[in-house]
Simulated assay, not measured.
Amino acid sequence: MLYESMLLLGVLALTFLVPYLMLGVGFEIAPPGWFAWLHIFAVLGAYFVWYWRRHGQTLAMQTWWLKLVDAQEGCHPTAARCWLRYALCWPSVLLFGIGLLWALVDRDRQFLHDRLSGTCIVLLPPATKA
């Protein structure tokens, strides 16, 4: 999560800070706070869903050989399932990490948002060098 957070800082700097600085400095406009949070939610959602849908992995997940798959089929999850997982991640993390701690008692060691969205994180075998 720490590595993913560092990558997300770059994503947010490009897609959030730069436009808001341009609006503020160039036009002296400050969007309302609720719009800023909605913007952050949408930008991060687009990042996660695009990577999960396309590769099954974000950049940080690629580093740790983790992949998101459909829990029943074992293939890439659908876009709807990815958006559901993303939406469920927020309360899972923000409610004192209860959805993450759920993995300690889950029979399959899944996070609560994975269990509810029908997804699963699997550990890939490391690539062998030829």
Rank of each mutant, 00 (worst) to 15 (best):
Y3H: 08
Y3T: 14
S5H: 09
S5F: 10
M6V: 14
L7M: 09
L8C: 08
L8M: 08
L9A: 14
L14W: 12
F16M: 10
F16G: 06
F16R: 02
L17P: 00
L17D: 06
Y20G: 01
Y20R: 13
M22F: 14
G24N: 13
G24C: 14
G24T: 08
V25A: 11
G26C: 06
G26Y: 07
I29L: 13
I29R: 10
P31T: 11
P31F: 13
P32K: 05
P32Y: 05
G33M: 14
G33F: 15
G33H: 07
W34S: 12
A36T: 10
H39V: 04
I40K: 07
I40V: 15
V43Y: 06
G45Y: 08
A46S: 14
A46M: 12
A46C: 15
F48W: 07
W52Y: 00
W52D: 06
H55S: 13
H55R: 13
Q57N: 05
L59Q: 00
L59V: 13
L59F: 06
A60D: 02
T63K: 02
W64R: 04
W65N: 15
K67A: 08
L68T: 09
V69I: 14
V69L: 10
A71Q: 02
E73Q: 13
E73G: 08
G74P: 02
G74R: 14
G74L: 07
H76E: 12
P77G: 06
R81Y: 01
W83Y: 08
L84W: 05
R85D: 09
R85S: 04
Y86W: 15
C89R: 00
W90Y: 11
P91L: 09
P91G: 05
P91M: 04
V93N: 06
L94G: 07
L95H: 00
F96I: 12
I98N: 10
I98R: 03
I98F: 13
G99L: 14
G99I: 10
G99W: 07
G99Q: 09
L101F: 15
W102A: 03
W102M: 03
L104W: 08
L104I: 10
L104K: 00
D106L: 06
D106V: 06
D108W: 01
Q110G: 01
L112E: 05
L112I: 05
L112Q: 06
H113M: 03
D114P: 01
D114H: 03
R115C: 05
R115F: 13
S117A: 15
G118N: 06
T119W: 09
C120T: 03
C120V: 07
I121L: 12
V122N: 14
L123D: 01
L123F: 11
P125I: 01
P126A: 06
A127G: 09
A127T: 09
T128I: 08
K129E: 09
K129C: 04
